[in-house]
């Protein structure tokens, strides 16, 4: 991994050459959820609109922040951008593929190839070593164990965890666990990395280090980071602000 300043510079150069290539596109996306029980007559199910008419375009090499208060629709948007969910109306295209056109299985395959997800609470598998955790996504790709572990080791080395390969999550600090989670998200070399509050459970210094990693990762892929942390949002190339399911920024 390169350092913070050089990462930004490399990313700027990368944007100059690849900015026309859209990695994620949302077109007039809305997402409604049914609430409560269905009424006596069909079609009476009450709904709540989590996202309303959202459009955005994120290109390879962009580091995009998503801001907004709780309940503004950040998580719903992340679900859609990560192909974990599909919109009620509108289109979400990842790498040119409309997620609504895909079956559940195809969306899983799309995630496996093109999307890396980093969670606030890391969600590592406690019974596996750091190296094995990072290698988990490659198992379903049919990659043999030695290759998987070589890839995982390389990534963990780049993230400064070369002395923590065989440690289980329970013996790692929060920052180390988050770096393992980031390595897991990057191991399939996805086009999009989606992170939800990745610094939410970290101290300032560790959080800054994790953000450095995201900046570097954004050199050749799109990184979308949702956060309440202004320091994290300040690192982004641009910030999409949501409120009550609507975009509030001027983009």
């Amino acid at each position: 991994m390169t350092t913070n300043s050089s990462a930004k510079q490399t990313r700027t150069e990368s944007e100059a050459t690849k900015s026309t290539e859209s990695t994620v596109i949302c077109e007039s996306v809305s997402r409604e959820y049914s609430r409560g029980k269905r009424g006596f007559r069909r079609g009476e199910t009450p709904t709540v609109t989590a996202l309303d008419n959202i459009s955005l375009e994120i290109v390879r090499g962009e580091f995009v922040g998503i801001a907004g208060p709780s309940g503004s629709g950040k998580s719903t948007l992340l679900h859609l951008l990560a192909a974990l969910d599909t919109p009620t109306t509108g289109q979400v295209r990842i790498g040119g593929i409309d997620t609504q056109e895909l079956s559940t299985r195809q969306r899983a395959r799309l995630r496996a190839k093109q999307v890396g997800i980093v969670f606030q609470r890391f969600y590592l598998l406690p019974s596996l070593s750091a190296q094995a955790n990072v290698a988990v996504p490659l198992i379903d790709h049919g990659v043999d164990k030695s290759t998987r572990h070589d890839h995982a080791e390389n990534l963990l080395n780049q993230l400064g965890l070369d002395d923590r390969l065989n440690h289980r999550p329970g013996t790692l600090s929060g920052g180390e666990q988050q770096r393992v989670a980031i390595a897991r998200a990057l191991i399939t070399d996805p086009d999009v990395v989606i992170a939800d509050e990745p610094t939410g459970e970290l101290d300032t210094k560790t959080g800054a280090h994790v953000l450095d990693i995201f900046e570097t990762a954004a050199t050749d892929r799109a990184v979308i980071l949702a956060s309440h942390d202004q320091a994290a949002l300040d690192r982004a190339d641009r910030v999409i602000t949501l409120r009550d399911g609507h975009r509030q920024d001027n983009d």
């Binding site: 299985r105 395959r109 995630r111 997800i117 969670f119 969600y123 988990v136 379903d140 399939t188």
Partner: peptide
């Protein structure tokens, strides 16, 4: 977690 990282 498996589903999130792309397992069908």
């Amino acid at each position: 977690i498996l589903s999130a990282v792309g397992y069908t």
